[in-house]
Design a protein around this nucleic acid. Structure first.
Lengths: 232, 232
DNA sequence: ACCTGAACACCGTTCAAGT
DNA sequence: ACCTGAACACCGTTCAAGT
């Protein structure tokens, strides 16, 4: 007679911090952060739950390791061109890193993996800050611009990731949005109803939405830099 | 001998959906979404946990009720001036609504309270879209601009809210940030270290950071509108 | 050192029961 | 209708024990 399928235990010493992080990232990217649990991860690895605690103090520490794993594999692009073109390339590559690895983004955004950042992240920050400081902005404006660019990038990536992890996927989300528009009263919300098709499309095209917003911010920065350092 | 302080039960029929939402919001704003639980809320109200289920199907529905409560009390400001000045005022008032009610923002951002929006929210959206459509932008640009403004506002408010709910509060967060800068190598991150004071300040001043970014976006929109509808 | 199972203190929710 | 307690299926983590 068949056993209750207890997924035969992995042989001793076959476990490692690396392997655990690998599987954790796979589980995270696959099912999302809400479906993640130490117990489920252990099950996946074919070990008892507490085996994980030999390698990590707890869930939090495992999350930080997962975050660092992804961030440390990140290669900032080598850029060229004017400072704003370089900023655009840097931000876009960050956006792609995040949307390509939804799990880590969720960890960062929900504050589950706070702590000292991996080196790759600070290298990119360094580039961003250097470009901004060389653009003619004063120090305060440069600092705030850095915050705006990073925040906008993370926020935009986060929105798209949530769209994908939401039940039913993007298709269902779009349907839900159409329904919301459908129940609005035409007298009170004429402009909203009129623009509904474009609004729905914009929401579906996360990357287009992001590049549009990024363009606006960079345009604002160019104007600001030009005003701060006018042609002599 | 004293009882185990079972917080004497509330009299029968003293409970209501209103009262539950009230307390839920208080608990949420006070301790944050992570510390919230149906059990804790019931305890706070002096009733058994299951009493809540007489008024709400479950946690999700309670969250939606809490969200709607807050959004329906929101009064969009009456604006005047040019379209971009009006947009600025609308966005700022949304930002203040959210940062004033951290709990609801977290519900919205973490997708815990999805569903049809309250009326007040769509009234504001209507205004935003109307202003954008009247600015000279084409339809697609108007839709994307709306997405950018809303997304940036929610994202910025969320960052500030998390800053406040993080352990130790803003002060501890700033200290942590200084520490992060302190451990960077001066050879590899000269610009970052040089701008550290301003970056720390910018992070502490959430509202200043937001208005700065909003200004950049609006500046970009003005340029775009001017290019789309040049003087005849 | 590496891994285990039992146990503890939580959680949301179902269910049968009481008023 | 309104509210209860017991129970179920989860969760992260502690702890004593096994190899």
């Amino acid at each position: 007679m068949s056993q209750s399928v207890p997924r035969r235990r992995a042989p001793r010493n076959s476990l490692s911090a690396e392997l655990i992080v690998d599987r954790a990232l796979a589980l995270l990217d696959d099912k999302g952060i809400d479906a993640f649990s130490m117990r489920a991860l252990a099950e996946e690895l074919g070990v008892g739950t507490m085996a994980l605690y030999t390698y990590f103090r707890g869930k939090e520490e495992l999350f930080k390791a997962a975050r660092d794993r992804v961030l440390s594999t990140y290669q900032p692009p080598s850029t060229s061109g004017s400072w704003d073109e370089q900023l655009r390339a840097l931000c876009l590559s960050m956006y792609e890193l995040f949307t390509g690895r939804p799990s880590v983004l969720q960890l960062l955004a929900e504050g589950k993996a706070e702590g000292d950042f991996a080196d790759a992240a600070s290298v990119t920050m360094e580039q961003v800050v250097r470009l901004l400081c060389g653009s003619g902005l004063d120090r305060q404006a440069a600092a705030r611009a850095a915050g705006t660019l990073i925040g906008f990038t993370i926020g935009s990536a986060l929105r798209q990731v949530r769209e994908c992890h939401a039940e039913g996927g993007p298709a269902a989300q779009a349907e839900l949005m159409r329904h919301r528009f459908a129940i609005l009263s035409p007298e009170r919300h004429p402009a909203l109803i009129d623009l509904a098709p474009e609004l729905t499309l914009a929401r579906e095209d996360g990357e287009g939405q992001y590049t549009f917003g990024l363009g606006l911010i960079l345009c604002g920065l160019r104007d600001l830099a030009a005003a701060a350092a006018p042609r002599p």
